[in-house]
Write a protein that binds this DNA or RNA. Structure first.
Lengths: 145, 145
DNA sequence: TTACGTGCAAATAATTTGCAGTCCC
DNA sequence: GGGACTGCAAATTATTTGCACGTAA
């Protein structure tokens, strides 16, 4: 287990691997965006937010490519679409099993660690359907607000 | 219980009352739309869906008014906005405490009777915030689909 | 009467798409 | 080299808004 030659620590390398594994060609833009999204733990981003972050990081990428990339990553299972409020789409780095606080009016999303919420019983799906995923959104408001 | 003089049964009358109670003038359009929305049990509609239904029912109303009315009803607490998929807004007749099945790809929403799902523990909100509402979305996919 | 509502069309916002040029394998 | 990818701008889709006219209190 020790001294193995794998270089897990290199985020760029990891991202390339990850992209290849899901069948996406690791291009400059995808690798850079993947690095922004995956190298810093869980993220919740909208296209606009990711675009601004990319600008700040001097990553040369167009807004259209941001949209396309977010969709491709989502289709590939690297991201999950978060339905927070209609009108704007958010994406969540797709770790298994956690839910979200959403702050009303502000557009902030905060992870709820998986264990802090628990469903006792899952409902029976209608005939011919199976459960793909369960989303729990806990909407918050400012006290006194 | 029997032969009481209240006329609970008259949907139009009920809707007028209801609108007045939340401070909305019971105009022709609002009463008609309220009737469509509230007289038939729980509903999940998008603006487009409500508009088409109104057309079928020969209710003279413009799409802009549908949007305005849905927003006004929501602000007044008669409806609740449902975050299903970004891109399109759905509204839910705001009964207390139930959750939703959402069928992937199709845009269908089905109520989960309140009792069929149960949260054991609610997570602790961050300092200064309180829980306004909990939404549970159970996403379904066709078996074998 | 008079402020509030409604309809229409134009405006805005978010996202997608077509196509010419660029880059990875 | 050749097909996959990107950027730009134009197109599409969902929703909101401004303003003249209609209508409930």
């Amino acid at each position: 287990m020790e001294g193995a030659p794998t270089r897990q620590g290199c985020p760029f390398h990891d991202v390339r691997q990850r992209l290849r594994r899901v069948g996406l060609r690791p291009t400059r833009q995808r690798v850079s965006l993947g690095w922004v999204l995956f190298a810093k733990g869980d993220r919740h981003v909208s296209a606009e937010m990711l675009f601004e972050e990319a600008m700040r990081e001097r990553i040369p990428v167009s807004l259209a490519t941001i949209y396309n990339t977010l969709r491709q990553f989502t289709d590939a299972g690297l991201l999950r679409e978060l339905a927070i409020d209609a009108g704007k789409t958010y994406f969540d780095t797709a770790s298994d099993d956690h839910h979200h606080f959403v702050i009303e009016d502000e557009n902030r999303v905060i992870d709820i660690p998986g264990r802090e919420i628990e469903l006792t019983t899952l409902p029976t799906p209608p005939e011919g359907y199976e459960i793909a995923h369960v989303d729990v959104l806990v909407r918050l408001r400012k006290i006194g607000g």
